[in-house]
Amino acid sequence: MAKSGTINAPALQLGATKAVRAGEKSVPTLLLAPTMIIMTIVGLYPLLHSLYISLTNYNPTFGTSYSFIGFANYARAFGDGQFWYSVGLTLAFTAISVALSLTLAVLLALLFNQYRFGFVVLRTFLLIPMLITPIAVGITWRTMMMPDLGVLNYLLSLIGVSHLSWASSPSSALASVILVDVWQWTPFMFIIIFAGLRSLPKSPFEAAAIDGAGHLATFMNVTLPMLKPVIVIATLLRVVDAFRTYDTVYIITRGGPDFATDLLSVYLQRVNFRIFDLGYGSALSWIALVIVLVVVLVFVNLTGFLKLVADKENR
């Protein structure tokens, strides 16, 4: 039995996950402990509380007494057309916005991976939008997009494009809000993918260059496969967040005009914090959670992410 502190050389060749050195048995638990502690202490109570509330008809508008109503809220949710409309709208919003952001982020990461004078400065501008507080983003874009008084329509009028409605018309509001979302969050995907790109080893690229591979071929066969985990992560995180988009959209449109941008989070906020129907609102929140979970699981399976991860970790 190897003593702790000495290395059992043959065991190491099996791959690190198997090669837990003697005495390292407790290490993973120790490493995971802080996270689990934080999750349990801070995360568990709100979770249980909201689960409990979802089984009642608690509404503080009417005072603090409430009664237990079982699954009535969930049953009500299934017949709530407005809720399912919001879910559908949010799925569409998420899909389009993340797809656009991803494409833009990958292209920009490739572009800025080159060493050119001034690129570092230009790259900095790319990172800033996601750092601005959503309230300011919402207000700035709301002003810029005003049909009669906004600077965007003014600039467009200079080049002869007539009066766009941006976020003030039901037909263009969703597109406008997606534009703002892409503007705001492409930097997020960019920074992760860019960091991933920068971390890639040089040798495969050198080998490809020696083989005479062109840009596109190198990208498709060398870059993309190596970048896949990072891309999937960035997309996954972005999808989970896009589903919860609230501040920016609310400030620009308040869910309108005429429900064109009544995203899930806007609807939930209305039920929970305007109408204060907390019982129902909690039930809706839980259903929303399940929906996101399903979306994430489908996505993760489609991209073969789990298999990828398992392969890497068992190497």
Binding site: V20, V27, T35, L293
Partner: peptide, 30 residues
């Protein structure tokens, strides 16, 4: 935690990872 998940054979690893991700999925309102 990431190091533990990446380098060690932890029981229920993926379940744990998704549990952690699900923190982000619950609407903050609740």
């Amino acid at each position: 935690a990431a190091y533990a998940l990446a380098r060690f054979d932890v029981k229920g690893k993926e379940f744990l990872a998704f549990e952690i991700l699900s923190i982000r999925m619950l609407p903050p309102i609740v």
